[in-house]
Design a protein around this nucleic acid. Sequence first.
DNA 1: ATGAAAGCGCTAACAG
DNA 2: CTGTTAGCGCTTTCAT
Lengths: 359, 359
Amino acid sequence: MVRSPSARLGRKGPSNKVPAEESPRASARSTGSVTLGDVAKLAGVSPITVSRVLNRPELVTADTLEAVRRAIVQTGYVPNLLAGGLASSRTKLVAAIIPTLGNAMFIDTIQPLNDCLSAAGYQLMLGLSGFPTTCEEDLLKAILSRRPDAIVLTGVNHSSESRQRLQAARIPVVETWDLTEKPIDMLVGFSHEKIGEAVADYLTGRGYRRFALVCAEDERARIRRRSFLAALARQGAACLATVDVPTPTTVRMGREGLARLLSDGHRPEAIFCSSDVLAQGVLAEAQSRGLTVPADLAVMGFADLDFAAYTFPSLSTVHVDRAAMGRRAAEILLARLAGRAVEEKRIDIGFAIVERAST
Amino acid sequence: MVRSPSARLGRKGPSNKVPAEESPRASARSTGSVTLGDVAKLAGVSPITVSRVLNRPELVTADTLEAVRRAIVQTGYVPNLLAGGLASSRTKLVAAIIPTLGNAMFIDTIQPLNDCLSAAGYQLMLGLSGFPTTCEEDLLKAILSRRPDAIVLTGVNHSSESRQRLQAARIPVVETWDLTEKPIDMLVGFSHEKIGEAVADYLTGRGYRRFALVCAEDERARIRRRSFLAALARQGAACLATVDVPTPTTVRMGREGLARLLSDGHRPEAIFCSSDVLAQGVLAEAQSRGLTVPADLAVMGFADLDFAAYTFPSLSTVHVDRAAMGRRAAEILLARLAGRAVEEKRIDIGFAIVERAST
DNA sequence: ATGAAAGCGCTAACAG
DNA sequence: CTGTTAGCGCTTTCAT
């Protein structure tokens, strides 16, 4: 191969846009797309130098850098991260598993997670566990087969098989949206148990005595309910009834929930809903029936979703800083991936009861 | 390598759970995880046979199948799709680009898309284009570097550079959420222009003459607005004012939008909002001011989001079957990927104006 | 600062 | 039906 300065620096040839069709086709299996080697040839350097330009430019002379970059643009080269990942065992991929996209709660965590990761050069790959077609087990297998550099999970209850797979993968793991004594690795969450208790204390403290629940069939919602009921019992207050609704929850389910409670003859003073979405439905139904909130009926939601605060101002709710959860998860993950020591790898982001009923 | 029947079929050895640490470490670069080769050794077959068991089991004897599967379980083998994809040029990955996760509209399309694809053995990789950190250009590069087998786009306006990259990738492309005369490849969408027109006709037909808009700074929302205004002009009706709001839109912005219109002294009879989220805010604000909808003020939304129908029953909206869009996109994509001929590769899913104001 | 050689883990293509 | 051979495109390691 000629290495005259002109070729090396790629200074001329207004028309050598694409590497000339190499004589007898290099390989019968080639995919047709531009490779490192093609760029290298055009720039008059070896493939490894092109690799360095892309990954460790500080190790390369300014001249070479320039020439290679020009060749990259000329050829329209797009690196093949499959090959790169295979060779280096680093994919720049982080996977996150959430139950569904249908619930704004999880998305509020995923957005900042994605933001932080992509700012650091990582790509987020989402897996949805709430589908009948793919059980969590298979989903994890599918994800691990792409060899992500790290993985973010929703919740802390995983099958022992899943835990084994995760351990075997030897990558950083962050569990979110809950707390546990025995995390797989890192953890950013809050206590659902304490929330149930706090809500019970809050409502009984305001004088309410007759309660009802509208609760999603969700693991964590169930924890909140259990501790809520336990605390109520301690206070001598009564839970008249519970309406269970499937996930993902909708506003409609909330409406129907209140309708059912009332038609069943219950007259609760306050209703604790397992999410703001359900609470929204309860409020809509209350309004359509001419009930005043919170005078006739107090409503407590969960999550503090943005839309809820601006639709019915009479909704009190449990605020959880979901965005912070995503950010902090990204932080500790990135620290670990960068080889930095992670000071605090078990984070409780807490919660707060937000009073809006007085508005 | 010994190939006694017992070894070959892997029938014994209760304790040979993990391939015995091979004498001098096979390679200094091994990543430590179980490979096809490890499974092959345990099962007493060649690596390619294990590959067949995984990908074309119909080509393998029942006995061999059995033995290999046992070995796979024993070793906890997880295939490396980086290697597989590199070797076969098929990654079983489909990428989709949407503006944001913050808008339920797009998610309603993505959910069924993901569902269909994963049922067919493909994994969906999401890219968010609405971020300041990654412009659409870079996002596309990042995505293509993972060599997806196909790609789904939101919208039909892409930079010429993007179009070139997509063309160069030589993979199936589906554009969604809009129509165009010159799609890159396949297309599933609906006409925003016709929607604006239809809404204008609908509202003027009901006798409204004084209008206002609350419109997101979104390309497609702008198209709807333009044709809406044009149609109004033809009818001799007046648009008093437009409130522009940034994306992603929130209920709050809708509230503030109506507040602004009123405080500016406008008294529209009907407001056309660029999404149900904004409409929700307008309705909430109207209610808090004691305005009756639609008697005092008619409100038209867009998208027909599920929560909107059950919160304020007085919202009329433009229904778009977003789920069908996702499903059909998956259909034509999968057909193409399976090598089947795609009969209808340009699909208009239409829309419908939903009257709910009378409830 | 740059290059040559070797191989990451898998599958295509061809034998047998 | 199963195995052998030869890469896929990149990065690591070690020379120079």
